[in-house]
Structures are given as C-alpha cells and as structure tokens.
C-alpha cells in the first residue's frame, strides 16, 4: 500500500472541504479580485477530483500569497518570487501530488521572472496562477512589471517610462504548454479555465486579472471583457504556436488600450518534464518520496557501487 493514501483516492469531494476552519473568511479589501481566484480554485477542485490532502498549494509573497490561508490543502507560503522552484521540486519528489503555485505579477513576472521562464521551459505538470492587478498592492501601490507605460505611483512620480511586460508572450516563448487569461469579473470562465489548467499535463499558466480597488483605482475593473473563444471577431487555432503568439500580442496590446480580451490562447500536448526525465533514465519510476516509507527498498551503498574505481 502506498504511504500516501490520499493520492488518487476515489470519493465524492465537496467544495467546502477547501474552506479552512482557521481563517475561513478572507481579509482582502472589499471588491478585490483575489476573492474570485479563491472561489474559482475551490470550484475547480471537485471538478478535477482532487482532495485537500493530495494537493499542495505553494504561494509567493503579497496579497496573492494569502491564498494559502483561505484555501485548505497542504500549503507552503514561501518567499517573494520563489513559489515556483519550491513547487516544481515537490512535483519531482512526488508526482502523484497535485501541485498548484500562485503569486502576483510582481512576484511572478518581476522578482521571480527567471524562475517563471525556467519552470515554463521545463514544462512541469503543474498549474501556475498569477494574480495580475498591474500594481504592487500589499506594499501600497508601487508600479509593477505589468503597470502600463506612464503609470504614476509614489516610486514613479512622473509616470513609468517602461512599457509593460507581456506575460502571455513571455510564457509562450519560455515553453509553457497551456496559457490562458481570465478575469476576476468573469467567474464562470475563471472556474473552467482553472479546472482545465489543473487537468492539463504540463505547465499551465493562467494570467488572472484581479482588480485592485484600493491601490489601482484608475485601472479598469476589467469590464467589459470579451472571451475570445465566444467571439466571432477572433478566429485562431490554440494549438498553432504562431497563431497563438499573434493573438497573445494583440491581447496584451489591447489591454493597455482599454479592451479586455480573455480566453485560452495556447495548448500543446508535448510530454511533461517528468515524462521526459524518466525517458532519459534519470528519474525513477517509483516516486522519490515513496522510498523512505517502503521497507522493501534495498538501499544502495557506496561501498558496493562506487569504491572499486578508487582502489
């Protein structure tokens, strides 16, 4: 029997199981988009059939990082920008665990940008939700990597001279195999996208537009929005890298012109990192974490395996 009996447990799962008994009520500001991420995630979990005990949620630092406090599962609230390297190693250590990482736009696209590129490139079978509110919220309103050019804040008093980062394009170029954008104001689409992302076998990145009513009052509330899959105006193949890339460029540009486009932009069914690594022979079939609980494992000894060549 597996030492991890929560993994793959077959039973009915209730959305309420993901509401913690400690801090059941989130403390985000009224009107904050973050509530929608929490709700979408709770809705998606029963949908994908995963329980709190087989799920690991790793977050970064910022308002987004509080997600861990309000979502009951195994939870690791890490440090600023580093949720992805912690999360992806947990997936390598025990592939049966459902691994989800979350953070804000500063966390994921700024300080953790290098990890974002490389985790996407490696295509770990996990989900990454970026709460994108185009601002640093918890530190009280500084310009972020996704803030529009000209954005004024206490740290850029004359307006940002920098064009915003293009998160979807960056994700595609880096190697993410599922890329979507949804918005807090569109809860139905959000829950569907989160469920799809979790079910996707590879690195699934969701750029989740979460309005900040406190520090980004000037910003749009991301309404009205258009779901590109529901619109006749947009016709592209999400499995075609070039068409996806062109669409993403348009979506990113339009956001700063005031038009909110959401939907699925890219999906590629290439093998996940675990599959690739196992194929090279450098990752065992048995999950690494299992062997510490498995009394039948014969532990290798350096004295037997490695010392001969030194004699």
């Amino acid at each position: 029997m597996s030492a991890f009996s929560a993994i793959g447990e077959d039973r009915e799962i209730e959305q309420d199981e993901f509401t913690p008994g400690i801090e059941p009520q989130a403390t985000w500001c009224p009107g904050c988009g973050d509530f929608s991420v929490l709700k979408a995630l709770k809705q998606a979990m029963p949908e994908v059939g995963r329980t709190p005990d087989e799920t690991l949620l790793c977050t970064g630092i910022g308002c987004s990082g509080k997600l861990n406090s309000y979502f009951d599962s195994y939870g690791f609230h890490t440090i600023h920008g580093r949720a992805l390297p912690v999360a992806r190693a947990a997936k390598v250590a025990n592939p049966g665990v459902e691994v989800i990482a979350a953070g804000g736009d500063g966390d994921g696209y700024g300080i953790g940008g290098n990890h974002f590129m490389h985790t996407a490139r490696e295509n770990h079978d996990m989900t990454y939700i970026v709460f994108n509110n185009e601002i640093f919220g918890l530190t009280k309103g500084q310009t972020s990597p996704t803030s529009p050019k000209g954005h004024k804040s206490k740290t850029q008093p004359s307006g940002s001279a920098k064009a915003p980062l293009r998160p979807l394009s960056l994700s595609l170029a880096s190697g993410a195999s599922y890329v979507a954008r949804t918005a807090a104001v569109n809860p139905n689409q959000a829950a569907e996208v989160v469920a799809e992302a979790i079910e996707h076998d590879g690195f699934a990145h969701i750029d989740f537009l979460t309005q900040c009513p406190t520090w980004n009052k000037d910003a749009r509330q991301y309404v009205p929005y258009t779901d590109v899959q529901d619109s006749d105006e947009y016709d592209f193949d999400i499995t075609d890298r070039q068409e996806a890339g062109e669409m993403m460029y348009e979506v990113e540009s339009k956001l700063y012109e005031g038009e909110v486009l959401t939907g699925r932009f890219y999906k590629d069914d290439r093998p996940s990192y675990g599959e690739e690594k196992r194929a090279t022979g450098e990752m065992p079939e048995q999950p690494l974490a299992e062997r510490y609980f498995d009394e039948d494992v014969e532990w290798e000894r350096c004295a037997d395996e490695l010392i001969d060549k030194h004699t």
Binding site: S5, Y74, H77
Partner: peptide
C-alpha cells in the same frame, strides 16, 4: 508530507 491522508498543514516564512 503532502499526499499523506489527514496530514495537511500550512507553513509559511
């Protein structure tokens, strides 16, 4: 550790 039944916990920096 994650995956163990009844073991879910939160930790934080």
């Amino acid at each position: 550790v994650p995956g163990q039944k009844g073991g879910r916990f939160l930790t934080t920096g």
